[in-house]
């Protein structure tokens, strides 16, 4: 029963959001401001109710209770790294690396045997390659080439 639980903190964050919204709309013309301003006020009012409720009846469960933080962080970092890699080396290479990485890491120890690694590589190249061709040449999507390759 901590006083500063996840609900109390998020209620304060939401209150802050509604204040920012209200201040931002102050500098706009009436027709741009009217809708977000009232939604911001509504959000503020709801956040106050939320705050009161979470102070009166705090939830017993912590935010990360029962969560495997390590695996979660790894997955999130993997997705973020993929985005960075696309920016750096373009879509095709980044996708092959990401897929190969995920398949060989996610499958557990067993998946790091040579044959399985080979299989993972083949899947990564085939799937990325197929969709790369489909998007780039059939649907003419100008996929990023990566700054390493002069784009």
């Amino acid at each position: 029963m901590r006083l500063l639980n996840k609900d109390v903190i998020s209620a304060f964050v939401l209150l802050a959001v509604s204040v920012v919204v209200y201040l931002e709309t102050a500098g706009l013309n009436e027709m741009s401001a009217v809708f977000p301003r009232y939604i911001g006020l509504l959000l503020g009012a709801l956040s106050v109710i939320y705050l009161v409720f979470s102070l009166l009846k705090p939830s017993a469960k912590g935010l990360w209770e029962g969560t495997n933080k390590g695996r979660l962080a790894a997955a999130a970092a993997g997705i973020a790294a993929y985005t960075g890699l696309i920016w750096l080396s373009g879509f095709l290479i980044a996708s092959i690396l990401m897929m190969f990485g995920f398949i060989s890491l996610l499958g557990g120890r067993e998946s790091r045997r040579p044959l399985r690694l080979l299989q993972a590589g083949a899947i990564a190249i085939l799937v990325s390659g197929f969709f790369f061709v489909l998007f780039k040449y059939v649907f003419i999507v100008p996929l990023p080439a990566g700054i390493l390759f002069g784009a």
């Binding site: 997705i79 985005t83 990401m98 897929m99 996610l106 998946s111 649907f139 999507v141 100008p142 996929l143």
Partner: peptide, 27 residues
Amino acid sequence: RMDVLIPVIIFLSTIGAFAIRNNFTDV
């Protein structure tokens, strides 16, 4: 297998997010 499906899903959502407006910021 899920360990294969997961990276494919990540890949498809990324390429989809890009293709809708051809904008890397969207990714």
